[in-house]
Computed example of a mutant assay.
Amino acid sequence: MQNNASAPEGFILEGFILVGFSDRPQLELALFVVALAFYLLTLLGNVAIVLLSALDSRLHTPMYFFLANLSFLDVCFTTGSVPQMLHNLRGPDKTISYVGCAVQLFFVLALGGVECVLLAVMAYDRYAAVCRPLHYTLIMHPRLCGQLASAAWLSGFGNSLIMAPQTLLLPRCGHRRVDHFLCEMPALIGMACVDTTTLEALAFALAIFIILAPLGLILTSYSHIARAVLRIRSAAGRRKALNTCSAHLAVVSLFYGTIIYMYLQPANAYSQDQGKFLTLFYTIVTPSVNPLIYTLRNKDVREAVKKVLGKGRAPVQ
């Protein structure tokens, strides 16, 4: 047995073993096919939204600025986690280097935090559009949009700078097997051979700021939106207002439903199998359906696609 002084160095060199579903190889094969398909859909859909938002002047609005940020975020999030997941699912090699695990943990935490805050920013944008339509352009001016987007990115990366190092430095008494297919914080904390109460308390406190506070802002925004919609007399006006918000509400429900389960419960109450499937859901499913949710009922995006593909009407001379 190695002594405590030499264990960290050897542990760093050996890295981790991502167990995943290695006891169910047929399930791993099916998950590989599913994960690859959803990853390709994620790249196609989200890159298309980023390009459309940049190329079509009709989409140079606060709503699409934030949507482009969300799409870029989803591309980064999936690219930082899914290729390693596919590598581990396709064969017997389940290893990941210590540095690779550290980078993956950092970006999963950071980008997940960014999305929490960014969804709250998008809810505020919808509040301004529905509840303050006459002052919308004054409220959501380009400088404020840039500041809000920057605040979202800084909050997520700031949270990860605090939590990722402390999670990685936990003593694990030589344990290398991570009962997951990603280097996720709950799974890594669960491997520790010391009391993690203090770290879990810190994680919960930061989660209040990163997860619950943005969720509170989202709910507050939509309570005001609901009251404003009920005051609209025409059915067409109500439908238009609801259409501008329904896509965002669907994304919020998908994302927060999984993230709250993953990060707002004690490590000893964490179900590994449930955690794995929920991680699969918000890692590969949610980012791939976001573009569909935002575009299927969105006339502006459909028209932008036609314009970029050269199928729009010729300009009137």
Results as ranks from 00 to 15, higher is better:
152 A>E: 03
152 A>D: 05
153 W>T: 01
153 W>F: 01
156 G>A: 08
157 F>A: 04
157 F>Q: 01
158 G>S: 13
158 G>H: 10
159 N>Q: 11
160 S>G: 03
161 L>G: 07
162 I>A: 10
162 I>L: 13
162 I>F: 10
162 I>C: 09
163 M>W: 06
164 A>E: 02
165 P>K: 04
165 P>N: 05
165 P>S: 05
165 P>V: 05
165 P>L: 05
167 T>G: 02
167 T>Y: 00
167 T>C: 03
168 L>H: 00
169 L>A: 08
169 L>R: 09
169 L>Q: 08
169 L>E: 04
170 L>C: 08
170 L>K: 07
170 L>I: 07
171 P>D: 03
172 R>G: 06
173 C>R: 03
174 G>A: 07
175 H>L: 13
175 H>A: 13
176 R>W: 05
176 R>Q: 15
176 R>L: 09
176 R>T: 12
176 R>G: 08
177 R>L: 07
178 V>Q: 04
178 V>D: 04
179 D>Q: 10
180 H>P: 00
180 H>Q: 09
182 L>C: 02
182 L>G: 01
183 C>P: 00
184 E>Y: 09
184 E>D: 12
184 E>I: 14
184 E>N: 12
185 M>R: 12
185 M>T: 07
185 M>N: 08
186 P>A: 05
186 P>S: 02
187 A>V: 06
188 L>V: 00
189 I>M: 13
191 M>W: 01
191 M>G: 00
192 A>K: 11
192 A>N: 12
193 C>I: 09
193 C>V: 09
193 C>D: 13
194 V>M: 08
195 D>T: 01
195 D>P: 00
195 D>Y: 02
196 T>C: 10
196 T>V: 15
198 T>A: 15
200 E>Y: 03
200 E>L: 10
200 E>M: 10
201 A>S: 14
201 A>C: 11
201 A>T: 13
201 A>W: 10
202 L>T: 14
202 L>S: 09
203 A>H: 12
203 A>I: 11
204 F>H: 12
204 F>M: 13
205 A>L: 08
205 A>Q: 08
206 L>Y: 02
210 I>H: 11
211 I>S: 11
211 I>N: 12
211 I>R: 15
212 L>H: 11
213 A>C: 03
213 A>Q: 01
215 L>D: 07
215 L>A: 15
218 I>N: 02
218 I>M: 08
218 I>Y: 03
220 T>Q: 15
220 T>D: 14
220 T>R: 14
220 T>W: 13
221 S>R: 04
221 S>M: 02
222 Y>E: 07
223 S>F: 11
